[in-house]
Every structure is written in structure tokens, then in C-alpha cells.
């Protein structure tokens, strides 16, 4: 009982907004930057290296009064496929959404091929997701297939 109270004090509940829980600890700040939380004027709570029964340790991000669009959520899949977002209204989880891989990523991830035109011109990258289960994406320009786990954001 004591423990629960302590934990809830560490990462305060929000009345309305979005909670992203069970984030791998090395992905927390990438997700924060992908959602442009540095420019967010609402209350943002970021916790990292928290105890997690399932993951050992985890990260969590709570953003008050923000509800993300499908496009914003699908961007998250580029760094953390299948991560869950909880939509909070009046302190209750009213909906859970999963960041599943979209059919394509435009201007989000960088091609791993150094001699790809996208790494040498000021242009948007385009990737087609060719295998959603294995997380395989293919660069529209150089045609190289790459795994989403090894890919970097632009």
C-alpha cells in the first residue's frame, strides 16, 4: 500500500490527456522529441528507469490535455512499434491506442545507405513498410530494405 502511494507520487496522475506507458528506457527521450514535447506548453511528466514488473525498468510519459492524431501516433511506430497510448479523461483510461506501423513513413526516418540521394539532398525521405510483422521498411529512392529497429530518425 505504501509502495503504491509512493509510485503514484513520483509520476502524478493527470486529469485529461495521454499516457504512454511501458516505454523501453532507451526510447523515452526519442519519443519525447518525436512528439515535439519540448515545444508543448501543457504539463508534461517524463519518468524513466522506473520499476516495472513486466520490463524490469521502463519509462513513462504523461502529457496533460494533449490528444494525438493518427498521423502523430503512427510516427511513434518508427521508434517503438506497437507501443500503447492511454487516453485519459477525468482520471480514467477511456481508450487505448496502439502505434502500429503505417504503410509508409514520410520525412521521419533516415536511410541507412550513405550513398542514398536522401542523405545528400535537402529532401524528405519516403519509406514503404514492406513487412509489418518483421518491421521491414524499404527506401523509395535507393530501394534498400532495412529493419526498423536499426533505423535512425531524421
Amino acid at each position: 500500500m505504501m509502495d503504491t502511494t509512493k509510485k503514484s507520487l513520483q509520476v502524478a496522475a493527470i486529469e485529461n490527456g495521454t499516457v504512454i506507458d511501458h516505454i523501453p528506457t532507451d526510447k523515452v527521450f526519442t519519443i519525447a522529441s518525436l512528439l515535439q514535447l519540448d515545444r508543448c506548453n501543457d504539463q508534461v511528466t517524463i519518468g524513466n528507469n522506473l520499476d516495472s514488473g513486466r520490463m524490469g525498468s521502463k519509462g513513462i510519459i504523461k502529457i496533460a490535455n494533449r490528444f494525438f492524431s493518427d498521423a502523430e501516433i503512427s510516427r511513434l511506430a518508427a521508434v517503438c512499434p506497437n507501443i500503447r497510448l492511454c487516453i485519459i479523461r477525468d482520471y480514467e483510461v477511456v481508450e487505448k491506442r496502439i502505434a502500429s506501423l503505417p504503410d509508409e513513413f514520410v520525412g521521419i526516418v533516415r536511410c541507412a545507405n550513405p550513398v542514398c540521394i536522401t542523405n545528400n539532398e535537402p529532401m524528405k525521405t519516403v519509406f514503404y513498410v514492406t513487412d509489418k510483422e518483421q518491421g521491414v521498411v524499404k527506401c523509395r529512392y535507393c530501394g534498400k530494405e532495412q529493419n526498423i529497429e536499426h533505423i535512425k530518425l531524421v
Partner: peptide
């Protein structure tokens, strides 16, 4: 002709 891959498509 270009040394970079995907240059012609772009």
C-alpha cells in the same frame, strides 16, 4: 548519370 542511388528517381 549520378553516383548517388535514387538520384534519377528524385
Amino acid at each position: 548519370r549520378h553516383r548517388l542511388e535514387g538520384a534519377a528517381l528524385y
